[in-house]
Amino acid sequence: MSRRVQGLRLWMWQRVSALYLALFLLYIVISILMLEQFDYPQWHAWISGPVNSIIIYIGFLMLFAHAWVGIRDVIMDYIHSIVLRSLTLMLAGLGFMVCLLWLSRVLIKAILT
């Protein structure tokens, strides 16, 4: 990974994802408040809509990107041993990948059923 990727680009991703997440949360709250009835069928119909499912999927991708930059910063600040740092970064990355796959499964299932 080049030095540029590690510095400016990740810093920018953190800001872009924060902006998306702020708007995303606002959209979610307003959408849920605007549901006629707050029950499972209503929620299911809302979440499985093509636009909403894409917005939610991107929202979670942004959440993972934001969390990744944050956790990477914490690890870089506090863990100085290269072996331990690589291990924790790998574990965090693996955790995010598992969450992402799980999220994909949930959303695909919601759309198909």
Partner: peptide, 11 residues
């Protein structure tokens, strides 16, 4: 100044 440390360690 680029890279993860020199500037971007500022939180």
């Amino acid at each position: 100044l680029e890279g993860p440390y020199r500037l971007f360690r500022c939180h």
